[in-house]
Amino acid sequence: MTSKNGEMLHLRGNALKQGEPVALPLVQSSMYHLPGAPDGLPTYGRVDNPTWQHLEHVLAHLENAPCLTFPSGMAAISAALFATVKAGSRLLIPSDGYYVTRVLADRFLFNLGILVTERPTTTFADGGFDGFDVVFVESPSNPGMDMMDLPAIASAVRAAGGITIADNTTLTPLGQRPLDMGIDIVVASDTKAMGGHSDLLMGHVASRNAQIMERVEEWRKVSGAIPGPHEAWLLHRGLETLDVRFDRMCGSAQVLAERFAEHPAVGQIRYPGLPDDPSYTLAKAQTTRFGFLLSITLGSEEKAETFINTCPMLRPATSFGGVHSSAERRARWGDDVDPAFIRLSVGCEPLEELWKAIEGSLNAL
């Protein structure tokens, strides 16, 4: 994957003409000079923007599939769903995945006549997929870190006549490639590791199915769910260091997980890279890296809050994937987890400095 990232760094450079800027220009215009017939030309900022079109070229290179960008991860998820469901459709989603996807399904899609079913990640395939028009998957689950057999699910859903959508936010295209495993559509929040600096909201949809992408693009045009050019420019800049950041974050997460597993203050540790983790076998088969997210459960809610809020190298914040390590109690958002359950996103700090700060806070509990 590093070589593909290397090619990505020079996609623009190798197409430049003499005297053109090496860095991607930021185009803020909402209007284009259009004397005469506008056929085949950029027309309006809700439809065309050179900055986010080049960003999509880069993302398509990483996904090895056509790609469209959106102003947030949920905008991307919404576009993928509204492009594939209609009144009377049956939708299957994880009961323990990212909670906002469930909120969208329960409060909005259901009211439009879409029949929504939820299943836990670990038993997601139980009962089969006959009758489901769209199957939305997330592996590993956020925040529980459980995994699904993506190739088996993709094959079974296709055989049953359905479409699969996979949320690949937690691992990025560098850590897991759902489209290569038969998934029809990938969605992701690029707010997280893809941007990497906690300073933008973005998302993308990728698919090798041309008809699906036509519908996704049409949804973006008519809904107005377009990315801002400045955010697109920031994400493009973030992608240039994704390979380096992701490697550092995943490598540190592996070491930290092993040390958490040995610390007496930690009641439970979940990380797919630990050989005794329930997700290890699937993660080893399906992913190129085990990721930068892990979870620990401490002795009480009070201890969890104290640990998060006193560790000098952990930012107490929601979201994940930034260069700064961060942590939060997911129960505060309503996830069905222990009140002392902590989702921890490992950043780019020097490993031993990070562990020294974490260990000191654990020892003080």
Rank of each mutant, 00 (worst) to 15 (best):
E7C: 00
M8S: 14
L9T: 14
H10R: 14
H10V: 12
L11C: 08
N14E: 06
E20I: 08
P21W: 01
P21L: 01
S29K: 02
H33G: 04
P35K: 08
G36D: 00
G40I: 09
L41W: 09
L41Q: 11
P50D: 00
T51D: 02
L55C: 08
E56A: 05
E56D: 05
H57C: 12
A60Q: 11
H61C: 03
H61M: 01
H61G: 03
L62R: 12
T69V: 13
I77L: 15
S78F: 03
S78D: 01
F82G: 00
G88W: 06
G88P: 10
G88R: 10
S89T: 10
R90T: 13
S95T: 13
G97P: 09
L104E: 02
D106V: 12
F108D: 06
F108Y: 15
F110S: 15
N111G: 10
N111M: 11
G113Y: 11
T117Y: 03
T122V: 13
T123G: 05
T123Q: 09
F124N: 06
G127R: 10
D130K: 13
D133M: 04
V137G: 12
P140D: 00
S141Y: 02
N142T: 12
G144H: 11
M145V: 10
M147L: 07
D149I: 11
A154R: 12
V157E: 00
A160F: 09
I163W: 03
T164M: 07
A166F: 10
D167M: 03
T170R: 14
L171W: 02
P173H: 07
L174Y: 03
R177E: 05
M181R: 14
I183R: 01
A188Q: 12
T191V: 01
H197P: 00
S198E: 07
S198T: 08
D199Q: 09
D199Y: 06
L200I: 12
L201V: 08
G203L: 03
G203V: 09
G203R: 10
A206Y: 05
A210C: 04
M213V: 09
E217M: 03
R220Q: 14
G228P: 01
H230Y: 15
H230G: 01
L234W: 03
D243P: 05
D243V: 01
F246Q: 13
F246P: 00
C250I: 00
V255T: 15
E258I: 00
A261L: 05
P264F: 11
A265R: 15
R270Y: 04
R270L: 04
Y271C: 00
P272C: 05
P272N: 01
Y280F: 15
A283L: 01
A285V: 07
T287F: 07
T288S: 14
T288M: 03
F290Y: 14
F292D: 00
L294M: 15
S295H: 02
L298V: 07
E301Q: 10
E302C: 00
E302G: 02
K303H: 13
I308K: 12
N309Q: 13
M313I: 02
R315I: 14
A317Y: 10
T318M: 10
S326Y: 03
A331W: 11
A331H: 13
G334R: 12
D336G: 04
D336C: 05
P339G: 05
I342Y: 07
I342N: 07
V346Y: 06
V346A: 02
V346I: 15
G347N: 09
P350R: 13
L351I: 10
E353F: 05
L354R: 08
W355Y: 05
I358R: 08
S361W: 06
A364F: 07
A364I: 00
L365I: 13
